[in-house]
Structure formats: C-alpha cells, structure tokens
Simulated scan of single mutants.
Amino acid sequence: MKKILFILFVTLSSILVQAQEDLIWHTDMAKASELSMKEKKPLMLFFTGSDWCGWCIRLQNEVFKKDEFTKWAKENVILVELDYPRRTPQDQSIKQQNQQMQQIFQVRGYPTIWLVNPEKTDDGKVNLSALGSTGYVAGGPEKWLEGANSIIKK
C-alpha cells in the first residue's frame, strides 16, 4: 500500500511540475515581440524583483504557479519577465534592456504587470502599444485573471 501511495505521489508531483515547466518566461524583448506578433498575442510584461520583492514572490506563488494561470497564459499571452534582482547576477544587456523598459512604462513599484501589443513600424522598429497594467491582486488566480482579461478585451 505504501508503494502505491508513493508512486501515486511521485506521478502527481511530476505532472504538476511539468505543467509549470511548460510556461516559458522570455527575457529578451526583441525575441518575445517577434513571437507575439507571429502568434497575434499580447505581451505580458512582469516587472519583478525576484530575489527581494515579497509581493512579487507572493504573486508568483498565489497566481503564476497555479494551473489556471498556466492554461490562461498559454492561450492568451507571451510572457516576459523583466527582473531587477539585488543578489542574483544578471547579464549586462538584459539589465540595460530592463532599465529601459522600466523607464518607458514608468514603473515605480513591484510587482507591475503591463499588457502590451508590439507593432512593427515601416522602418522596422517595434512600438509597444499599452493595453493596461495591474499588479498584485488578492484572491488567487481567478481574481487576478478576471482583471487581466478585462485589460486584454478593451
């Protein structure tokens, strides 16, 4: 009986881990924008302090690591993590890109989430058309997704 329970536990754990691993959080804005335009899905820009921001960690645990969010994200958005860590080393080009994005969207606190549509201009540059923003929302994935859906459907 113990062996059956153990096997069941291991199987369920691996399924849950697999579901979360299926989400791809891009860090390169150029690549994410290309993918967004190709798949005709908005970008979800997650401005976070991954190794120090308590509310960011809480949002990840309460919403982003839940099956409801995983399913929604795969169907509706291209995920982009714009991280501002204090202790974790970060590539200089990513650091510069993230600082530029922080200035463009005037992010003053974390977590901040912007939903945007990238659009290619005639000269080949990419403009980001803002749909709206949100942050931490109490109430789990259902409440958070309700707000995100209202931004996307505007």
Rank of each mutant, 00 (worst) to 15 (best):
V10N: 06
S13T: 15
S13P: 09
S14N: 06
V17P: 04
V17Q: 12
V17Y: 11
Q18M: 12
Q18R: 11
W25Y: 08
H26W: 13
H26G: 01
T27C: 08
T27S: 13
D28A: 07
D28G: 07
M29H: 08
A32G: 05
S33D: 01
S36Q: 05
M37H: 09
K38V: 15
K38G: 14
K40M: 09
K41Y: 10
K41A: 05
K41F: 10
P42D: 06
P42E: 02
L43G: 03
F46R: 14
G49H: 04
W55R: 02
C56H: 02
I57S: 02
R58S: 04
L59T: 10
N61A: 09
V63P: 00
V63K: 02
D67I: 13
D67M: 06
W72I: 01
A73R: 02
K74H: 11
N76V: 08
I78Q: 03
L79R: 01
L79A: 07
L79H: 03
E81S: 12
D83T: 01
Y84I: 06
P85A: 11
P85F: 10
R86S: 13
R86G: 05
R86F: 04
R87V: 08
R87Y: 11
Q90P: 07
Q92I: 15
K95T: 13
Q99P: 00
Q100V: 14
